[in-house]
Structures are given as structure tokens and as C-alpha cells.
Write a protein that binds this DNA or RNA. Sequence first.
DNA 1: ATATATATTAATGAATTGTTAAATTTATAG
DNA 2: CTATAAATTTAACAATTCATTAATATATAT
Lengths: 220, 220
Amino acid sequence: MKILIVDDEKDILEFLSYNLEKEGYQVSTALNGMLALDIAKKIKPDLIILDVMMPEMDGISTCSELRKIPETQNSLILFLTARSEEYSELAGFNAGADDYVTKPIKPKLLISRIKALLKRNKNNESSSSIKIEDIEIDKERHVLMYRGEEIHLARKEFNLLYYLMSIPGKVFTREEIISEVWNDAYVGDRTIDVHVRKIREKTGSNYIKTIKGVGYKFDI
Amino acid sequence: MKILIVDDEKDILEFLSYNLEKEGYQVSTALNGMLALDIAKKIKPDLIILDVMMPEMDGISTCSELRKIPETQNSLILFLTARSEEYSELAGFNAGADDYVTKPIKPKLLISRIKALLKRNKNNESSSSIKIEDIEIDKERHVLMYRGEEIHLARKEFNLLYYLMSIPGKVFTREEIISEVWNDAYVGDRTIDVHVRKIREKTGSNYIKTIKGVGYKFDI
DNA sequence: ATATATATTAATGAATTGTTAAATTTATAG
DNA sequence: CTATAAATTTAACAATTCATTAATATATAT
């Protein structure tokens, strides 16, 4: 689960990073709203923690901007506010915030609030199954049905195929695939190929087409 | 669906009544905790919305009392809290609350939260017994029937299997499992495995499938 | 034909889960 | 209340699966 923290105080960034990473979250940080927008576009965080009080671009403006870009349209946004800034609540919710936590921050409380938010959000997620002709990939069940047979795919194989099937026919570049499926990890050139091969092998077919010099696409 | 709203401010009662009735709920109101108990006994509401801050008998005490009378033992209870009353969250959940919404109240948010609560509840309540082929798990009797034989499962084992069987085929992540079965307790990495193993051992079969890197699921 | 991109294969090492026994906590009977 | 049993959790280590790479082969565009 990816979290982006935005605050102009380095101390707070470190404090929160430490506590959230300890919980197993993948944490990124930004010192101001502008940076936050750039980073958010790249990493597509599931949750963004925004300080309301920041110089230049405050949390509320940042929130509004974040809601405009597709990468964070559906991210959860949690505000950090000083106890006195009650006014900000209305403005914040209008700008699209999902929850608030007041300073001083108590890590345990923050974490329980984050968990509650993520949990709540999960319940609203739409159907996770994609079906194209006789192929159906079901994220909830983590199963690939092919001509009535259940085929087991390992995690990366599954995520890769799911990503390709999310927009059938679209060619995904290697960069796009590495960004989405590998979270921008540094992996060798052949890694994708090997995974594609495994999928082709397991399904005994070739719905994943190679577009030489461009990338891969799922197509019947 | 019957909802009881408890708040000492008439304005809020009216505001909420208006918004909830518009959604088709059958709304009753009470101006304090004592009244709430009386009314609740009569109408047996499915959901009770409780303001935490009330003179005389506050929301948390009212909640505790409501949990004691049979008419509302299984009702859903949702708290309204001011942003600053952080303490109430912990105390509220201990008193038996199911969810909370912070003021100022956004009707859209409140309604979506109510719907989520009712939905969640329906799934849990519909039948306390889940039967899949020759396996039947009965929450009321706290018993697992497998091929006509009664198998004793310890409490955690039972809860875990029940959770997995609640949506057969769905992969539950370790996070989800810890959140639901262990109430977010900090338990070691191997705890779930050991419980899974015990269940597999006792049933002498493997209906609990491991999806490596993802989680576990119940599947025939 | 040649350069470049992709496919294949097998080996390695990392990550995750399984197993067992012992330690700890909780429940139960006397 | 205490002794005992049962349940739960932890820790250590084994087993397994998966991801990645490297080496090499093959395919494709120009």
C-alpha cells in the first residue's frame, strides 16, 4: 500500500515515515504541494497525507489539484490540521478530503485511522473480474479461467496479465509495465519476457502479442 | 429500515431526519440517552446514530446501555463525534460502536457510511450457517460438520475458517485476516499459518488454498 | 545480411509459507 | 483459588515456490 506524505517540516516527514514504514506501508514524501503533484503522478499513491498549513501551496489547494489529475482521482486524502483550524474542515471536505487527523499526531491513532480508511475504501471497489471471450481473469479469486479450466498464475504473472487485459488491444510499453507491475523496480531487460513466456506456456496459447520495438498487448 | 437518531440539538435531529427520510429510511429521534433507551425498546431500530457529546448521559454510556438490552443487542451503532474528541474513538469502539462519523456532518458521506454498515451487517447476519458441498460451518452451534462428522475447532480456528468461508473463492490477504479475525492485534507472521495448518489437519483435507504472496482462500 | 529486439532455458537466490515443538496465555474443573 | 487442560502464539528451521538473471538461440525490420 503506497502512501505519500506532504508536509513542509522535515521532522514530521521523518517521524511519520518511520511510523508508517514500520507498519509495512510504502512511504514517499514531499516538502511542498508542487513536489507532491509530481511524485503522485509517478507513484500513484493509495493514500495521501496532507498538511493543511504549508507555505506557498496549502493543503487544500494541493488537494484540489490532486483531485484533478487522473492518477490520484481515487486516492484517499487525509488532512493533518492544527487543533485550532476548525474552519479548514469544511473547506477540506469540499476540496475532496476523506478524513482528518489533528496535531499533535499520535501514531497509533493515525495508523488506526488509516487502516479504517483503506478498509472502507476497499468495500467500495468495483468488480475485479475481466472477461474477454473464453478468458476471464478474476482478481478477487486470483484465478484465471481459460476455456473452463482454472489456471494458476504466480503473483507477478497474474498482475502482468491483469494489467494487459485491463485495456485489451492497447499496447503497453515496457516502461509502463515496469512502472505498474514492478513498481518501478530495477529489473533486467529479460524479466518481462520470461513472465510473458510463462503465461503463454500455462495457457498454451498466445493472446499476448509482441509488438516489436514497442511492447506487448493482449488481443484475441 | 428503521433508524434512531439521538442528539441533544434539535437542529441536527431535523437536518439528519430530513436527509435520511429522503433516502427512504424510517427515522425516529430522541433528545437524550434516557429517551433513546425507551424508544429503542419499542421500535427496535436497525441502526442507532448517537451523538457522543450530550449532557447527562453521553453517547458512550448510552451505547453501553443499549448493548445491554435485548432489543438493541444486535443493532448497529454509529457515533457522531466532534473532530477534537479523539479519546472518544477508542472508548466508543470499546462500548460497542460499529462506526463513527465526525462533525460537521456531510449528508452524502453519512449516507454512504450507513449503507456500507447495513450491507456489511446483512452479509454477516443473513445465515449463521454456511454450507459448501460436504462442509458446513455453523456459527450458532459453533460447530463444523465435515462429511457427516462433527469436528471441534478452537475459537480462532473457527473464526478463521468462518471468515474464509464467508466468501468462498475470494482470496483474503493476511492483512484482511488479521484485521477481521485478530482485530488488528499485533501477531507474528506465522500465527495465521499455524491456524491454517490446524484446520487442514483436523479436517484431513485442504480446502484452504494458499495463494503465495497474496493470501488464503476457501475453495473446493 | 546484419543489427537489434525478443524468446527460451536453466540455474540461482530471494521471498514466502509449512512444520514442529516449546513458551505463554487463557479457560475450566475441582 | 489453584491445578490442569486447552488454546494461542512464538521461534527456529525446513520446504517450497517464485522472481530474476545470464547465457544463448531465434525472430524481425531495414
